[in-house]
Computed example of a mutant assay.
Amino acid sequence: MEASFRPAYLNLLESGALEERIRQANALLSPCRLCPRKCLAERLVGKAGVCHTGALARVDGWCAHPGEEPVLSGRRGSGTIFFCGCNLRCVYCQNFEISQGAAGREMSAAELAAGMLDLQERGCHNINLVSPTHVVPQILEALLIAARAGLRLPLVYNTGGYDALETLRLLDGVVDIYLPDMKYADAKTAERYSQVKNYPAHNRAAVLEMHRQVGDLQLNAEGLAVRGLLVRHLVLPNHLAGIRQIARFLAEEVSPNTALNLMGQYRPEFHAGEHFPLNRPPTAAEFQAAQQAAGQAGLTLPAGWN
Rank of each mutant, 00 (worst) to 15 (best):
F83C: 07
F83L: 05
C84G: 09
G85W: 05
G85F: 01
N87L: 07
N87I: 08
N87T: 14
C90L: 13
V91L: 04
Y92M: 12
Y92A: 12
C93A: 12
E97W: 01
I98T: 15
I98Y: 05
I98Q: 09
S99L: 09
S99Q: 12
Q100L: 11
G101L: 08
G104T: 05
G104V: 08
R105D: 07
R105A: 15
M107E: 06
S108H: 05
A109N: 02
A110S: 13
L112A: 06
G115I: 00
M116T: 01
M116G: 03
L119H: 05
Q120I: 06
E121D: 10
R122L: 13
R122A: 15
G123N: 06
C124H: 00
C124S: 04
N126K: 09
I127V: 15
V130E: 03
V130I: 15
P132C: 08
T133N: 11
T133I: 03
H134A: 11
H134V: 14
V136E: 04
Q138G: 10
Q138H: 11
I139T: 13
I139G: 14
I139N: 11
I139K: 06
L140T: 11
E141V: 12
L143S: 10
L143C: 12
L143N: 08
L144M: 09
L144S: 15
L144Q: 14
A147C: 08
A147G: 08
A147W: 06
A147L: 03
R152A: 07
R152H: 06
Y157A: 01
T159N: 04
G160N: 09
G161Y: 01
G161I: 02
D163Y: 04
A164D: 15
A164W: 01
E166T: 14
L168T: 00
R169V: 08
L170P: 02
L170K: 04
L171W: 11
L171Y: 09
D172Y: 02
G173L: 04
G173F: 08
D176N: 06
Y178K: 03
L179E: 06
L179N: 10
P180G: 05
P180D: 10
P180A: 09
M182Y: 06
M182T: 02
K183A: 06
A185G: 07
D186S: 04
K188Q: 15
K188R: 15
A190D: 10
A190M: 07
E191Y: 10
R192V: 05
S194I: 01
Q195K: 05
Q195W: 05
Q195V: 01
Q195P: 00
K197Y: 04
K197V: 03
N198H: 14
N198E: 11
N203H: 13
R204T: 09
